[in-house]
Computed example of a mutant assay.
Amino acid sequence: MAIARQRPDFTHEATAWRAGDIPVAGADEVGRGPWAGPVVACAVVLDPARVPVGLDDSKKLKADKRERLFDEICATAEVSLAFAPPARIDGHDIRKATLWALAQAAAGLARPPRLLLVDGRDVPVVACATRAIIGGDGLVASIAAASIVAKVTRDRLMKQLGLAHPGYGFERHMGYGTREHAEALAELGACRHHRTSFAPVRVRLALDRPTADRL
């Protein structure tokens, strides 16, 4: 007999509320691994009376369901987004840039949270208590909501970059290191949205500096 997979719920938030940590926010990021584009971080404070049904780790949801949940989350919850662009990633490293974006997202909430629940092992430096939860986007409702908003936002942005920089295929691979992306780098060089500190891009730049109009 198959065992049902655990899905995100509001248990962590409810426990925090009972302890007086109001509001409590969940935070997550998308885009640590791609060769191009920003890291997008999101912080969400859910309304306990209107928690969207079907929340899950954004990676486990089909695109149409992510879009539907994105709209519902933005209509019912407090949402804040922050972006760590390639220049910050290259200047500080991906970990520091990601933590910076998470901190900016938390700081951008209309009501400062008393507790920030963060997916993963690291927590940003913020003006409230923090708790890292490994696999939090699959366990905690507000983190799952943050992962969905961050994912949809970044995908939309990369599709726009695909139109602005044709040939790279950003609208399909979202900046990740696919064969198509590698072939485009070899043919076109890097554009200003590439992360020059990432090895595939750095190697390409060493072989053939991109033309000034691409940078």
Rank of each mutant, 00 (worst) to 15 (best):
I3Y: 03
I73S: 11
H173D: 08
P112Q: 08
I22K: 13
L115P: 06
H92Q: 15
W35I: 00
V53H: 07
P113M: 02
I148Q: 06
Y168V: 01
L117K: 01
L185H: 03
V53E: 11
V125S: 08
I143A: 06
A43L: 10
V201F: 07
V44I: 14
A43G: 13
D137Y: 08
L205P: 07
S142G: 10
L61Q: 11
V203G: 12
R111Q: 13
D208K: 05
I94T: 10
V24G: 05
R154S: 08
R111D: 11
K96W: 01
W100N: 08
A110T: 12
A84D: 15
C191F: 02
G138K: 06
R156H: 15
G120H: 04
D21N: 09
D93T: 07
A63W: 07
M1I: 00
G169S: 02
P86S: 13
T15Q: 14
T196M: 02
E183Y: 01
A132M: 10
K60L: 12
R204Q: 15
A190P: 10
G167I: 03
A212G: 04
R7I: 01
R68E: 14
L46G: 06
F10N: 06
L116S: 07
L207V: 05
D64M: 03
I148P: 02
D21T: 02
E187T: 04
D57T: 00
I73E: 14
P124L: 12
P34A: 12
D71S: 15
P200D: 07
A63Q: 12
A199G: 02
G189W: 05
G175Q: 06
D90F: 07
K159C: 14
C74F: 11
R214E: 04
G33T: 04
A25E: 00
P8A: 00
V126L: 15
L69C: 11
G136K: 09
R179K: 13
D56P: 01
A150D: 03
M174T: 01
A101T: 00
V125M: 02
L205G: 05
V125A: 10
R32W: 01
L61C: 06
V79I: 14
V79R: 14
L46H: 10
D90Q: 10
A199C: 03
I134Q: 00
H193R: 05
A25C: 00
T130I: 15
P124Y: 00
G169I: 04
A212W: 09
P38C: 00
R18P: 04
V149K: 13
F198C: 14
D47N: 14
D93G: 07
L117C: 10
T11R: 15
T196E: 05
H194R: 11
E187L: 10
A14V: 00
L116Y: 09
L207E: 08
L215W: 04
C128I: 13
G136F: 13
D137H: 05
E187G: 05
L139W: 13
G54Q: 11
P48Y: 11
R114P: 01
A132W: 10
E180M: 15
A25F: 01
E171K: 04
P85M: 10
A206K: 13
L117V: 03
F10Y: 10
W35V: 04
L161S: 09
V126E: 14
T130F: 12
L215Q: 00
P86V: 05
R179N: 08
H181A: 06
G91V: 02
L102G: 06
S147T: 04
V201Q: 04
V39S: 14
I134L: 11
G31M: 07
